[in-house]
Design a protein around this nucleic acid. Structure first.
Lengths: 128, 128
DNA sequence: TGCCGTTACGTGAACCGTAACTATC
DNA sequence: GATAGTTACGGTTCACGTAACGGCA
């Protein structure tokens, strides 16, 4: 799972609590806090209102979270698409040729093929 | 302008050339190249086909670029929204009060106010 | 030779953890 | 005292630039 900045903020927003969010992300609460502060500084806007009991989203925070969710969704779809593509480039392919020089062709192309699709095993089967 | 990984890849795709893309991004071609290679390693997929003359998108690259554009658009909108919000918290506010102790109220609240909205200048005008 | 991608290498910055401080319950 | 956020400090990792190399017009 690839986590990025948006995920951290979404986790905080979800829990309304840096400490608990940090636990779910398997990072220190200090580190997560630093991330939040740094992002707010970069944006020049507070994303969370620090209350006594918990953190609540500011208007800016709501905008950020709303869009972060959209981005997260797109990323999810993207990785799914790429994952399929990667799995597709994995497996075995059996080739049959009736011509003797088919093997020559194969041996000429194989290095290039293997370079591009290292996870596909090509099997040549000559039939006389 | 905040640039992220997606922007780098989009620039390469646009120019079909790392060197030129690097110039438009004001970074070294070496650094941009390193970014691309690292991303491809993380994904486990090549995004660009290295041809003699130029770089062209692989199927995986096309998927990535397509989604990167969507994300870029969302980010653009997000920053625009946040920018408006930030500008809204900037300017001058003139307050008038007819009661003498209005000033006391003001002086009590002002520090908190200024902490949250440092870019708004509050002007108090007492009328007798 | 010039332009391209790639790699080696070093340095400055960024990340992020532990620990300590403060405030609230 | 328990739990919260914040800050200090430090070590490690990472980013990214310069320089050098190899392939191709």
């Amino acid at each position: 799972m690839i986590t990025n900045r948006s995920d951290y903020i979404l986790a905080i927003a979800e829990h309304g609590n840096i400490s608990r969010a940090a636990k779910t992300l398997y990072i220190s609460q200090s580190g997560l806090n630093q991330k939040l502060i740094k992002l707010e500084e970069e944006l020049g806007l507070q994303l969370f209102q620090r209350n006594k009991q918990h953190l609540s989203l500011t208007p800016a925070g709501k905008i950020y979270v709303e869009n972060a969710k959209k981005i997260q969704e797109i990323q999810k779809v993207t990785y799914a698409q790429l994952g399929e593509l990667k799995d597709g480039a994995r497996g075995d392919i059996f080739l049959g040729t009736t011509q003797a020089h088919g093997i020559d062709l194969f041996t000429a192309i194989f290095p290039l093929f293997h370079e591009k699709f290292p996870h596909i095993n090509l099997h040549i089967q000559e039939r006389t």
